[in-house]
Design a protein around this nucleic acid. Sequence first.
DNA 1: TCTCAACTTGTACGGTCGTACTAGTACGAC
DNA 2: GTCGTACTAGTACGACCGTACAAGTTGAGA
Lengths: 217, 217
Amino acid sequence: MSESTARPRRRRSDRDPAHDDSPAPGRPARRQADGERRPQRARDPEARRRDLAAAALEVISESGLARTSHRAVAAKAGLPLGATTYYFPTLDDLIAAGLQLAAADLQSDFEVWAERLRTASDVPAAVAGLIVEYLTDRQRAQIECELYVAAARDPALRPLAMAWLTGMRDILEPHLGRDATRDVMALFDGVTLQALITGHDVDREALTATIRRLTTG
Amino acid sequence: MSESTARPRRRRSDRDPAHDDSPAPGRPARRQADGERRPQRARDPEARRRDLAAAALEVISESGLARTSHRAVAAKAGLPLGATTYYFPTLDDLIAAGLQLAAADLQSDFEVWAERLRTASDVPAAVAGLIVEYLTDRQRAQIECELYVAAARDPALRPLAMAWLTGMRDILEPHLGRDATRDVMALFDGVTLQALITGHDVDREALTATIRRLTTG
DNA sequence: TCTCAACTTGTACGGTCGTACTAGTACGAC
DNA sequence: GTCGTACTAGTACGACCGTACAAGTTGAGA
């Protein structure tokens, strides 16, 4: 991820071999005036990594990609600022971790969807149902859209956005065929976008009818 | 516009009656060390307002809403920073001005589109043609999408986004009817989004066929 | 028990930001 | 002319940012 969305951003210095253990000379970091240092938590690198990624995702969904910062994520996770840069050398890494988490969520959704379609007697109605359900979680839909738009500007985000798209395609194509899948996916994205802007719910029956039109060549 | 996209933002102080002419006490602004003050341009408030809005739009389309700042706009317009805040009290105002300009552009496009559809023998083909043409200017499409997503988060941007949508609807509805218009618009937005992500061009024939399916109930 | 690297925490630097403000200038009203 | 003010230009403040780093702590291995 070279520059995820839109933020002044400096690159980590070049020498950086992973985490640069060498003490290296520099100005001294003064101790707190006389305040107490918070007692140190038990070590648990895996959990911290997970917590930070989860907090990043929360911040992204609440405030948007562009407002996501180390400090916001650290605060959300209840961890010190330094923890974010220790585990995720750059902000882009942190954001990517959050988005990966979202992608994983979606992936598990996809499995449910695939199963639902396999057993559906009326495929267009089933697809419409999935879309309507998907749209009940606006914040998730918002993240997806934001990722899309950001990906259009930042090539580094494109693989992630494409994963979204191809995952969807792989589910629909066996049931709808290539062309209808393309059309239904575009419809899906458009409906999502409009639902986000207008705040209206989608009409399940109308959507079913539309999808049926697209799928019966 | 309360918080257009995603940026830490303070509000202009409350007293502010438009532009606050009272000199008001405060620290002195020191003169330049000994550098020369740039010769002052001729007065032309209208032109400056226009230039700033145009520069804002340029910055938005090049860098995205989130990276748009007073300084970037001022630099793009070749004007001092102070000019931006003189004419647009807050950054949100400046961004809004840029987007209004884009909206005006779109409006004039809409008129052309309406005319094209009035004289079209094959409406679905004509609509597909308009969409394909619209997508040749990726940067414009990008702005539209960015506005959409930002509007989903920021209510203040919603009217502008809605203007986009209703303008489109007013053009299509006389030819397609209410339901097909809804569907074609969703398809339009979805196709736009996907074109931006994938970078692929849309297939005009396929799009025509799809729209035809949506419009022949 | 001691060692030491991995980990935790707090702070610092240099930057950009929005916005407030001072100071200088052009130009219409008189 | 001269005056007043709308406009132009430049700078300052305080905030937040990404990132670098030092110092404290833990716990596994010798």
